Computed example of a mutant assay.
Amino acid sequence: MGRRLADIPGFGIDRVAAAAGADPAILRLENLDTDVPPHPHVVDVTRAAVGRDDANSYLPFSGLEAMKEAVATFIRRRGGPSYDPHNEVVITQGEGDNMLDALLALTDPGDEVIVTDPTYAGMIQRVRLVGAVPRFVPLRGDADGWRLDTDALRAAVTESTRVLFIAPSIPTGWVPSQQEWEAIADICRERRIMLLYWQGMEGIVFGGRPVITPSALPGMRDLTVTCGGTAFEQRLIGWRVGWIAASAELAPQLAMVHIYNGIVASGFAQIGAAAALGLGDDDVRPAVAEWEWRHHELVHQCAGLPLVPAHGGWSALIDAEACGLDAPELSRRLLEQKVAATPMTAWGETVAPRHVRLVFSNEPVERLALLGKRLRAALP
């Protein structure tokens, strides 16, 4: 086995999902899925593209022009800067290979990449896969939600730091405030460090919070590499279409890495994804309202327990150790009570491993109403 794999643990979600099996009585809170369907127009457009010659090709490697234009329009509509769709946008196979593409282009082995604790395990392990070193900065969670320790963030920066890798919402529901984004941007500008921003859940925010696109902050356009995708807001998980938006200087390097990593995203899926982005936020808002309603029910079911509420996204974390258990044991006990939930063992350094993730996006409110009794039955 290659040495680069020595410190990379298993994902965890797959083991919980396999243990849950196909029992319909089990609440499926272990994985970021949703039963909120894509817009029917998007399904129709995708079906119509299947079998067409222009939708069944290796070319163009960096993505269909219509998809690139849809991404550039989407970012600008969200308040972000203008990107040349032909020279500054690369289309990828979802929201995983784009992260790896970016890390391969932005770092060398031994470089340090700052991530939050908790954060998406797929980010942490991709940092390690490229030979870089993750440095963790804690999020602080309480009954009001998660906040970034900006003093710890500044202290974590060293001469070896090359990238700040920030992913709102996953897995915590943390949505950075304007002040937190400003603190991140200050470091990037002062130290000429790149911000690698995962945009996937950008528009899934609760409580009327504003959507903030960090590449729009002063001086941040060319210091930001934005990785996005249509899996979450547009509910196109199986389409596997994502993107990278970056400066004209960086984009050709990112496109080259993508050719040797992902080659090309599905043509007919790109056609459907472009249609989804073209629908705008009028399609996204009803889905967000549904997920916020489900989150409200989750909080209600966990009343009195150490759940940190989400400000956005599809999941929230409960502190297993505050419940008197470690996270794997709470996950095991929950499964006995017919609740599948993933321990955050590999999702951070000191904060994440205390927690179990509860995904609220894939169960309707009437099913989530079963959680409280089952959760309390799992506790000592």
Rank of each mutant, 00 (worst) to 15 (best):
M1W: 04
L5M: 07
L5S: 01
A6Q: 13
I13H: 06
V16C: 07
A19T: 15
G21L: 14
G21A: 07
D23N: 01
D23C: 01
R28M: 02
E30L: 00
L32G: 08
D33G: 12
D35P: 12
P38G: 00
P38E: 06
H39E: 08
H41N: 03
T46F: 05
T46N: 09
G51P: 10
D54A: 13
A55G: 11
N56R: 14
Y58Q: 12
F61Y: 15
E69W: 04
A70Q: 11
A70Y: 06
F74N: 04
R76M: 09
G79F: 10
G80T: 06
P81S: 11
S82A: 13
P85V: 07
E88Q: 15
E88A: 06
I91L: 03
M99H: 15
A102T: 14
L104C: 05
L104T: 01
T107P: 13
T116G: 08
T116H: 02
Y120K: 07
G122Q: 05
V130Q: 04
V133R: 15
P134L: 12
R135E: 02
L139D: 11
R140P: 05
D142V: 03
W146Q: 05
R147V: 11
R147T: 07
D149S: 13
D151M: 10
A152N: 08
A152K: 14
R154S: 00
E159P: 02
S160W: 01
T161Y: 10
I166A: 11
I166T: 01
A167L: 03
S169F: 00
P171L: 06
P171C: 07
T172C: 03
T172Y: 01
W174A: 05
V175R: 14
S177Q: 14
Q178S: 15
R191Y: 13
I193N: 04
L195E: 09
L195W: 08
L195H: 00
Y197K: 10
Q199H: 11
M201A: 08
E202S: 15
E202K: 01
I212L: 12
I212E: 11
I212W: 00
P214W: 08
S215L: 05
G219S: 08
L223I: 00
T226E: 01
A231M: 09
A231I: 00
R235W: 02
R235S: 03
R235H: 09
I237R: 03
W239G: 02
G242Q: 01
A246T: 12
E249H: 15
L254D: 12
A255N: 09
S266E: 10
G267W: 09
G272S: 14
A275Y: 06
G280D: 09
D283G: 01
R285Y: 01
A287C: 02
A287V: 01
A289T: 09
W291Q: 08
W291A: 04
W293E: 14
R294V: 06
V299Q: 13
V299G: 06
C302E: 02
P306E: 02
V308R: 04
P309I: 07
P309W: 11
H311M: 12
W314E: 11
C323I: 03
D326L: 02
A327K: 13
S331L: 12
S331F: 08
R332Q: 15
L335H: 11
K338Y: 06
A341G: 06
T342H: 00
P343L: 10
W347L: 12
G348A: 15
G348H: 14
G348K: 06
E349C: 13
T350A: 15
A352N: 06
P353K: 06
V356K: 04
V359R: 10
P364D: 07
E366R: 03
L371Y: 02
G372H: 10
R376G: 09
A377D: 13
